[in-house]
Design a binder for these strands. Sequence first.
DNA 1: TGCATAATTGGCAAAATAACCAAATAAGAT
DNA 2: ATCTTATTTGGTTATTTTGCCAATTATGCA
Lengths: 106, 106
Amino acid sequence: MNNTKRARYETRASILKALAHPTRLFMIEQLSKKSHCVLELTEMVGLDVSTVSKHLSILKNSGLVNVEKKGKQVFYSLRMRCALNFLDCVEAVLREQAQDRMDAIQ
Amino acid sequence: MNNTKRARYETRASILKALAHPTRLFMIEQLSKKSHCVLELTEMVGLDVSTVSKHLSILKNSGLVNVEKKGKQVFYSLRMRCALNFLDCVEAVLREQAQDRMDAIQ
DNA sequence: TGCATAATTGGCAAAATAACCAAATAAGAT
DNA sequence: ATCTTATTTGGTTATTTTGCCAATTATGCA
């Protein structure tokens, strides 16, 4: 792989990386249902506000979520609904893994 | 989030993590076209064999690829074709980002 | 049996990531 | 203008990840 090609894959990987963290995955799911401000998400996640804010910043930079400021609060929502397809595939992988383990003990 | 829930999201995130690296992303694409042995992939990727082998081990453990031993060689292939849907969404995100930048300068 | 090839594993150093706390910024309310 | 609330940013530490080299394992061949 030359440098140009590697850069191309790095860009794409960075979007996947944004999703590849339990907290961010959870937040993406919540944001797919309705938009939330930082404190609401902080409450749901159960980590420090600053940590949650940084996670949201990663999601924002990836282009996966929308940001809207309303007075003192900042509301995040899911921009790319197709990200939810990822999760369907992840579930499919888990089902396959479970089947493999079943096969292994028979 | 309680511990059970967090564990649930960690499992799912680990599958996404397997995809979220430029080298592994590239290999998944190659393996979607045809199966390859480790040395072939090493050639294409341009990193040390041991590095490529470790990346492949991550993909294998995620359940995304199949492994088949043939004589001295080990062939990897894409198991979960749905992983390619991920990449379609990634492309969609990139198109949106490009559009945003266009809008910004107008 | 010994040799060559293919792949994996262990160990180490450098880089990236994630968590917290403290401090700074932004905006509405008194 | 000051105070309070919401969010972000800077800094530190601990952990994880990635890459290479060297050594080991596995398989087929002479």
